[in-house]
Design a protein around this nucleic acid. Structure first.
Lengths: 112, 112
DNA sequence: GCACAATGCTACATAATCTGTAGCACGACG
DNA sequence: CGTCGTGCTACAGATTATGTAGCATTGTGC
């Protein structure tokens, strides 16, 4: 259990600096965080569907990340079940989209 | 020491899917990876300077991430000492820049 | 040459985190 | 009722991070 269970930023390391970018960088720099956002990018997924999409990652971490991501307001759990991005989460995901093209070029340069 | 010291993609989980975005997401989704890229964004830093910038993180992890980031071709160690981004690394960092503005809006909405 | 400081980097024990498997409570269907 | 799927949790073992100390090397001044 972290130090606090307060509002947001319970133990988001970077938040100590007061710069929100640090908090965000820390939140996203946790295992499966980026991946979860990415997999949710084009539609809702159930917890088990998300697990499948995430290469059978442990439900333990997935639930932890999902909790943090929900607390941050990026992800929400629909009433009929199934996780999806909030409007804010979609914005964040859009920010990450150029990464896709970059990844392609990265591989090309690496293999060269 | 990890299992291999091979080219790239030694144990980058996502790379199993063959999609480079997964490898990238996994690499960046490790502790301090994003932060290192961010701190290097506007200039070179020595290993100890980077440590200071990264809130006194352990040199162990920093060296590990630095090694992975160098292997990926995002970071390089100058001959006179000091780490800096490669051209590819700067490209990647540029991709992340919109995150800064997003982080500001994120805080605004969270605090609201 | 020799102390001195700074560099990149590593060792090691402790603590935190992730993995993998199993299973819970709940609700919807039949 | 039985079975399925949902979100979610427990727990032991493996992995990774933390924190402190220190190494080898290089440059600088004396």
């Amino acid at each position: 259990m972290p130090k606090q269970t307060a509002s947001r930023s319970r133990s988001v390391r970077g938040s100590r600096t007061g710069r929100p970018i640090m908090a965000l960088l820390d939140l996203l720099g946790r295992r499966w965080s980026l991946r979860i956002l990415w997999e949710l990018r084009d539609g809702a997924l159930t917890s088990r569907g998300l697990r499948t999409a995430c290469d059978e990652a442990s439900p333990t971490v997935l639930q932890a990340r999902l909790g943090e991501l929900r607390e941050a307001g990026f992800v929400e759990l629909g009433d009929g079940g199934g996780y999806s991005l909030t409007a804010l989460g979609r914005e964040l995901c859009a920010t990450f989209m150029p990464l896709h093209r970059f990844a392609e070029r990265w591989r090309d340069k690496s293999d060269a």
